[in-house]
Every structure is written in C-alpha cells, then in structure tokens.
C-alpha cells in the first residue's frame, strides 16, 4: 500500500536518511524504533511531505508521490499530492491541536473545510470518534483544558475524522507523563485491532513488541534490521541486541 524505496535526505552537509526502503501492507502495523537522532522522525515527515526528499521513490496505492526519472527526483503534480495527503493521517509528539478551537471544532474543521462534508455530518462523526477515544464529554472543552493524554487522544480522533487509509505516529507518547501513556497506547491498540494501517515511531518497546506486525530498527539513517516483532526482539544481531537491551532498560 505505502512503498518507499531508497529514500535519501540531507540537511545541508548532514546526511540524515541514507537510502531507506519500507513497504507497508494494508492493515499492517509497522513500528520504527532506533536511537534518538537516527532519522525516524525525518523519515516519517518525508512520507507526509513535511520534508521533501533528495532521492528515492514514494508511492501510496497507485499514486506516485515522487520518483527518480533520468537521475533526477520528480514530485507529482499538486492534485496527486493532495490525494495522497488526504489518505494519510499524522499524529505528532506535541499534539499540535488548534488552541483557538473547541475539541469538537478541532475534529470537524478540516472535514468541513477540506472535504466539504456538511457540518452536521462532520459533527456526528466527530462525536462518534470522541466517544471512541473516551472523550465524549470533552467536545466543548478547549485544548488547554485537557491533560496531555487527553490531548493526544483528541489529536488521534482529529486525524481519524478525515478518514485516512494510513495513520502515521511520531512518538505519540514521548511528551506524556508515564501514567498517561497507557491511555494513548490503548487507543492505538484498538485501532490496530480494527486493522488500521499504521506506521509508528516509538520508544515504547512493549507496544512495538506486542502490537506491531513488523518492527524496523533504524540507526544512523539506515535500516539495521527488519522483521516480525518476535524476530527483531530475539535477534542475534549485536547492534539490535544492544539497542533493545538499552531501550528496555
């Protein structure tokens, strides 16, 4: 469904992604793990076009976001890019809720403004999603009135309200107090059970091990190891063992 091939990205002289390839099948949950600064966020942001890549190919279903032609990188026309954007949902480490909108409005604004959904329909759907993440009673609150865990659940519901085919998460629990991470992980686990396609950058080794179908270890802008959660967590590769040993504390 989502395919990235040989993606390269540099910031000035700093080569951050050194040819990363990843294929995500429909309904699959893929966890990206690795030390901080290894390029996980950058890779996810390239998939979302929050960063542009320097080399490589990225496709979603039949739409080519960018590809190499004659040795040069070409991005698709804006119509194709927009179609791809609308199929992808993104959840940030820092939530990025809109502070001037109520929780309900955070969920409905894009469906109404971008997808041209009638407001009543958008609100119905938003309330359904808020109930699903356990925040039906927060519809009229403002983001600053929520805890971190609640904010992140709203952010997940906001992304879902656009009906994405694939959800990307960039360390969704890293900004949270430990006692609040579980409520967010539970929501993500429910999504996984419903066969939502998910790419998750995470430091939560238990989530990576128990929830994901596949685990990819990235170090220094490249893939060190990739396989089922079981394969990676029992790997004999010394670098993998070292990272997992440290990450599990």
């Amino acid at each position: 469904m989502l395919n990235a091939e040989n993606v390269r990205k540099r910031f000035a002289a700093n080569e951050v992604l050194r040819g990363i390839s990843l294929n995500v099948e429909k309904g699959e949950v893929v966890s990206l793990i690795g030390p901080s600064g290894s390029g996980k966020s950058t890779f996810l942001r390239c998939l979302n076009r929050l960063e542009t890549i320097d080399e490589g190919t990225i496709t979603l279903d039949d739409d080519v976001m960018c590809e190499m032609r004659g040795g040069a990188l070409h991005y698709a026309d804006s119509k194709t890019l927009r179609r791809i954007t609308l199929k992808m949902g993104m959840v940030f480490q820092s939530f990025n809720l809109f502070p001037h909108m109520t929780v309900l409005r955070n969920l409905t604004d894009a469906p109404v403004a971008v997808r041209r959904l009638p407001r009543s329909q958008a609100e119905e759907k938003a309330r359904m999603l808020l109930a699903k993440v356990g925040l039906a009673d927060k519809a009229d609150s403002y983001p600053h009135q929520l805890s971190g865990g609640q904010s992140q659940r709203v952010a997940i519901a906001r992304a879902l309200c656009m009906d994405p085919e694939i959800m990307c998460f960039d360390e969704p629990t890293s900004a949270l107090d430990p006692e609040l991470t579980q409520e967010v992980l539970n929501v993500m686990q429910d999504l996984a059970k419903e066969k939502m396609t998910m790419v998750v950058v995470t430091h939560e080794m238990r989530f990576a091990r128990n929830v994901s179908d596949r685990v990819v270890l990235i170090e220094n802008g490249g893939i060190v190891e990739e396989g089922t959660a079981e394969q990676v967590f029992t790997s004999q590769n010394p670098r993998t063992r070292q990272f997992i040993g440290e990450a599990q504390g």
């Binding site: 979302n48 076009r49 929050l50 927009r82 954007t85 609308l86 992808m88 949902g89 993104m90 940030f92 990025n96 809720l97 809109f98 894009a110 403004a113 971008v114 997808r115 906001r158 992304a159 656009m162």
Partner: peptide, 9 residues
Amino acid sequence: REAGQVLGY
C-alpha cells in the same frame, strides 16, 4: 502549520 498541512488544508 504542519498540522494544517497534513490535514489537507
């Protein structure tokens, strides 16, 4: 701005 972009605004 990034949240706006990924939501398709």
